[in-house]
Write a protein that binds this DNA or RNA. Structure first.
Lengths: 201, 201
DNA sequence: TCCTTAACGGGACTGTGGTGCCATTAAGGT
DNA sequence: ACCTTAATGGCACCACAGTCCCGTTAAGGA
């Protein structure tokens, strides 16, 4: 029983995912209709319902697609420089005319579907792991304690930005990005993100 | 033309909002059907559609209801103590069997409806303002710079917790809460959250 | 090149989420 | 106590998202 993911099938998938992105940006997650999606992608309605079957499944597939393409981490020579680059990248992504609504849709989809939630978790785990070396390098340079939890630091940079995105409180610009990076560095240097038990000063 | 929000109307609203909470906890935001909601609340389907008209509108009304009841801030005598209390409260809320799914539903609803987003923003703005005095008091005690942005510090405490909630990366327990509080304090003491322009060290 | 069959597409169908209509109930003022 | 009318509830109705069926297309192996 031969598999056949090539040619037409791949073309259909690409067309549907691209159209889904367009519709999510235009109308948002809640108003995304699979009938519209099929028409927009110039693909049979039956095909969309058979291969994906639900809006969340389409979003999940988009996430798997996005997880493939990796974003190279920065290497400015200082932890603050690297994290600032990371924070600005995140802000640029979340405020991007196209990617912003896309990320919001994905977060929304993940709250109501376990498969999407799992895909989202993997996506972020991957992204975080890609940037963690910034912190381990900084630890090697002696900028932060050697037993600093690198991934925890990366999460600390993104956290204030996503908090603003989902709660709507506060702006989302480069100034906020810089502050997020500075806060993460200050906390890391103070030893807040050291692994395991440690006394508080 | 007399208004009449009392008696039966209020009873219907209370019944619907309570039922909505139950259904959101049981089935989640995406599967909430207004027909089911009406039956569960023992209220006419027409009434639900006339007064609210959409799932997001019901969620928005729940948010307005929740915004009324205020949560008293802590006053332990130290900034770290206060923020730790705040962080643990947030974690307890987000991991609560009932409130957790409720908050997820509200965040999801806010991404697809501007009215809900506005209500959510007001809700958090209120909560943040209630806890801001912890920081201004600490500034008065000299724990942090006098020109520290109090609300920014409070946001910094919640941010890592909400980041975990929406991305699914990492645990959500008291240890994380404590680290969030410690990180915010460390950054605040380092002057990261001072208002206006300031040089980086 | 040919053959098998996985995958797609069109069109008819249906279950149900959402609306319109109107009689009934009960706030709230006098 | 009575009257006005805002608000509710039941029922019939409708539009359309999602399913089914079946003929058609084109991967991919021999």
């Amino acid at each position: 029983m031969p598999e056949r993911p090539g040619g037409r099938t791949a073309r259909v998938r690409a067309s549907v995912l691209r159209a889904a992105g367009d519709l999510l940006v235009e109308s948002g997650f809640a108003r995304l209709d699979l009938g519209d999606l099929a028409r927009r992608a110039e693909v049979g309605k039956t095909t969309v319902y058979r291969r994906w079957g639900s809006v969340t499944a389409v979003v999940t597939d988009m996430l798997l697609e996005m997880a493939v393409e990796s974003v190279p981490r920065a290497d400015t020579g200082s932890l603050l420089g690297d994290l600032r680059a990371n924070a600005r990248l995140v802000v640029r992504t979340l405020t991007d005319r196209r990617q912003g609504p896309l990320f919001k849709a994905m977060l929304a989809a993940a709250t109501s579907d376990v498969d999407t939630a799992e895909a989202l978790k993997r996506f972020y785990a991957t992204r975080i792991a890609e940037w963690a070396p910034c912190v381990t390098d900084a630890a090697a340079r002696g900028e932060v304690p050697a037993d600093t939890d690198a991934e925890e630091v990366i999460r600390a940079v993104s956290a204030p930005l996503y908090y603003r995105l989902v709660t709507g409180t506060g702006e989302l610009d480069d100034a906020v990005a810089d502050r997020a990076a500075e806060a993460a560095v200050a906390a890391a240097k103070a030893g807040v993100f050291r692994r395991g038990e440690h006394a508080l000063d």
